[in-house]
Design a binder for these strands. Structure first.
Lengths: 192, 192
DNA sequence: TAAAAATAGCGTCAAATGTCCGCATTTTAC
DNA sequence: GTAAAATGCGGACATTTGACGCTATTTTTA
């Protein structure tokens, strides 16, 4: 399982073998089954999660029980609730597995130690954060300005590989439209 | 004009007088009139902007010319396009002044120098970034799940002081609803 | 000070969207 | 292997929302 992570991180960051070994030594391997929760609303988020294999979903609920998907994380992506992790406050989010998955976990403390000892990792981590910020801004703009069909097309174009692995009602939830609307859009596109 | 900044930064970060002086020495003071642009779509963003006085707006347009407000920045806030600034790529955004304003500017290079020499500033800057990430997530969740009225109420509750300074059609644009819808909501609330 | 622009509201109408319902098919779980 | 759950579609209907045009008032600009 660590092999996938090594392949990923070597491609992104120049690391010595000792650095790699240090990172590995504080990582916890975990296997999760489909539907299993990695984080619950109300809990303090304890880990940064790297997905070696499988697919995770981060979502949030309203008082009425409705679920709203914030993010999908397939293999070679990350998942966590940075707000809860950094501030050690109860999280608003759930993270669960949409497929049987294999993940690596680092605690806040260990990851901070790694960043302190390995500047290249720290700056890569910062780069990921700013990428996330940009993706978030793009999504806000899309939410403000795009029609449901445009949102759908953007999603399929941006995430073609994971699109096929996600039930449509979760895509609808991610886009902020009803499943009904999504069905109509797809129906209309089929007719062209 | 620098006085407002000093008051602000002293409250947030422990800094020596030399640090403060260094920060000041590379800052550029600028006075902008209402409607004046500080950044144009297509331009590379050159500065981090701190607002001493006044009110800025960051927005983006679609091909059809419609404007969509990403952010309002009143005094003691910041504005910039981090994506364009960091990567030196053309920006998607406009930044303009909604009121006559006084701002301080730092180039990417100077700000990087400051962060390198003043670790406390660097970590404060990181904290701002993560706060922005959290605000963005909250806004995405709201865009996905809230009704227009809930979004409006949230906005008024979150930004009571700047709400009164912004024309309603810009509030509507920020919320991603039409001015018509916003008028209807306000009308309905008046009747209660 | 006067003209022009910005702001915000309203009425009407059409279109988009959501909710509720059932149904058929596939997938999952025991 | 069989029952249960999940998934996706479609119809009917009500509601929300937006687009357009018009007007009154305020603010800005020259």
């Amino acid at each position: 399982m660590i092999a996938e992570f090594k392949r990923y991180i070597k491609e992104k960051v120049k690391l010595s073998e000792e650095d790699l070994e240090l990172i590995r030594s504080v990582a916890v391997e975990k296997i999760v089954r489909r539907k299993q929760l990695l984080l619950q609303q109300g809990e303090v988020c304890r880990y940064k999660i790297f997905i070696c294999k499988g697919l995770l979903r981060t979502y949030r609920t309203r008082e009425d029980g409705s679920e709203h998907v914030m993010m999908f994380s397939p293999e070679t992506w990350w998942a966590t609730d940075p707000e809860s992790l950094n501030n050690q406050t109860p999280s608003f989010y759930y993270i669960d597995a949409l497929e049987d998955s294999e993940v690596l976990l680092w605690t806040k403390k260990d990851f901070a130690m790694l960043c302190a000892k390995i500047p290249a990792l720290k700056s890569y981590s910062e780069k990921l954060i700013s990428t996330n910020l940009n993706i978030g801004r793009q999504r806000i703009f899309s939410a403000l300005s795009a029609t449901p069909e445009e949102k759908y097309d953007e999603f399929v174009a941006s995430y073609p590989n994971i699109f096929a692995r996600i039930p449509l009602h979760m895509v609808a939830s991610y886009l902020g439209v009803s499943l009904k609307t999504l069905s109509r859009i797809r129906q209309a596109q089929l007719k062209r």
